[in-house]
């Protein structure tokens, strides 16, 4: 996301911040941040040039750059194809673009203690899933890749 497209605060590419960031507006990070980012009612975007070593707590989070730490989104979390992430992601909805690199844990359980405690008093329960994997339904023919022969 470019700074022109973004409405809210911007940490530019030449800026480095160590410490705790708090506020009530959306934030785009193109610089370096170490510490903690708490924008629990707003969105945080780590832009392609952003380098974050921090725990992030926000309503929604988009990662296009590098993040190391715990990322907690009460609504949703998006990892773009340019994202390089190491750590723990906790959000009821997680979307990922192929190409993103990730090592760690993605917790999509809305009942997870971590998300409940981080956003105490706010609803984090997503809408019920519209569709479930159809594997629970009647078996389909040719369910293994073509040409398979069950030898079990």
């Amino acid at each position: 996301m470019s700074e022109q497209q973004h409405r809210g605060a911007v940490i530019g590419p030449s800026i480095q911040i160590d410490g705790t960031l708090k506020g009530d507006e959306d934030l785009l990070i193109q610089g370096k941040v170490e510490g903690t980012i708490e924008l629990k009612k707003n969105s945080v975007t780590v832009g392609e040039s952003g380098e974050v070593k921090a725990d992030i707590f926000a309503h929604s989070i988009v990662v296009e750059g590098q993040v190391e730490g715990k990322i907690v989104g009460s609504e949703r979390l998006v990892m773009r194809k340019t994202a390089r992430v190491r750590g723990t992601l906790i959000a009821p909805r997680v979307m990922l673009e192929d190409g993103a690199r990730f090592n760690g844990t993605i917790d999509m359980d809305p009942e997870a203690e971590a998300i409940k405690s981080a956003f105490a008093g706010q609803s984090t329960k997503p809408n019920p899933p519209q569709a479930q994997p159809s594997t629970a339904s009647a078996p389909k023919s040719g369910s293994s890749p073509a040409g398979s022969a069950d030898r079990s």
């Binding site: 990730f102 090592n103 809305p110």
Partner: peptide, 11 residues
């Protein structure tokens, strides 16, 4: 995603 899932990734 529809599950109450924890997904560990070791690349």
């Amino acid at each position: 995603a529809p599950y109450r899932c924890r997904l560990d990734i070791i690349d």
